[in-house]
Simulated scan of single mutants.
Amino acid sequence: MSPRILFSASEAKWHEYEGHLRHSLSAAGITAELSPDLGPPEEVDYVVYAPDSDVQDFTPFTRLKAVLSLWAGVEDVVGNTTLRVPLTRMVDSGLTEGMVEYATGHVLRHHLNIDHALAHQSGNWVRHVPPLARHRHVTVLGLGVLGAACARALAGLGFIVAGWSRTPRDVEGVTCLSGPEGLEQALARAEILVLLLPLTPGTDSLLNAAHLDQLPPGAVVINPGRGPLIDDEALLAALDRGDLGHATLDVFRTEPLPPEHPFWAHPKVTVTPHIASETRAETASEVIVENIRRCEAGLPLLHLVDRDLGY
């Protein structure tokens, strides 16, 4: 029997993904029914899923084999008690490449003090010579697929890179730290801090007032990970005191970021509108179809979410 695949995301996403999914299914030799409306849920084998979709109760999907998320973050669905089948998250090569480009671009921007050059085009010959990358300490919090890729890229540029994760990791060229003591060490050396942790109850507001105080004076924070990783009020207070040099933020607790939010007008904050990395339909479709192929063949799923860890 051909697998039946429900595409449970927005209409715009359906138009974006349909052609790529059908192409990937054909390339994999899979004959399947694919639609945003397959009729009775008890006849659905797979759900290609965005956590903001209309499907919030999985109980009627009695034949369901797996839920395949289009998002890298699964914090909005991992705790759903009606979801009792395997859940996978999106690990997409295009998403990884985009995140590496964003992180390295903004680390270099702050390392080279490009903002100062752009703000002082007045004819005054004021020289600010940056240190070499091999003299600059960068810390990446989170050493999953995205964090490890960014850490390796920054190390490849010559930066002194440390990475922290809740469980021990090993990334070539990176000083890998873990646990509470490791976090203190990672923060204390972070002239530039990049946040790429998943959002879990244990990481919500991880960068709070106490942890901000552990950063070196004038440190820069770059957050392309998850908005709630940061205590917004504590961050603004540290910027206002001069303890932090700058914050470049791509993700926020409320998105779009409200026009009245103080981040917009703060002279030491750069806001980018959640563009650090985007799932590309072409490459993401290949990931989705590969997991369907594996499941149909009785093979382990890729990027399976650990419900206890939350990612």
Rank of each mutant, 00 (worst) to 15 (best):
Q214E: 11
P262T: 01
G218Q: 01
P216V: 03
P259A: 13
A238P: 14
G242N: 02
L249Y: 03
L299H: 12
D204W: 14
Q214K: 15
E278C: 11
T175D: 15
E286N: 10
D232E: 11
L236A: 01
V171S: 10
A265P: 04
A281F: 03
P228I: 02
T272A: 11
L177I: 09
L206S: 06
G173R: 11
D204C: 10
H261M: 01
D243N: 09
T283D: 07
D204M: 13
R226Y: 01
G173E: 12
D243P: 06
V171C: 14
R226L: 05
H211Y: 08
E191K: 07
L244D: 02
I192E: 01
L183P: 04
G218N: 00
T167H: 15
P259H: 08
R294Y: 04
I292S: 07
W264Y: 09
V287M: 14
L207I: 01
D204V: 14
P217C: 09
L195E: 00
T203L: 10
A219Y: 00
N223I: 01
I292T: 12
I288P: 03
L249F: 02
E282H: 14
L187C: 11
E286R: 12
P198Q: 02
V289Y: 04
S277N: 13
V251I: 08
H246R: 12
V251Q: 02
A297T: 04
C295S: 15
L257A: 05
N208E: 08
E290T: 13
A209Y: 08
P198A: 07
L206M: 06
L195M: 11
N223Y: 00
L215G: 05
T203G: 14
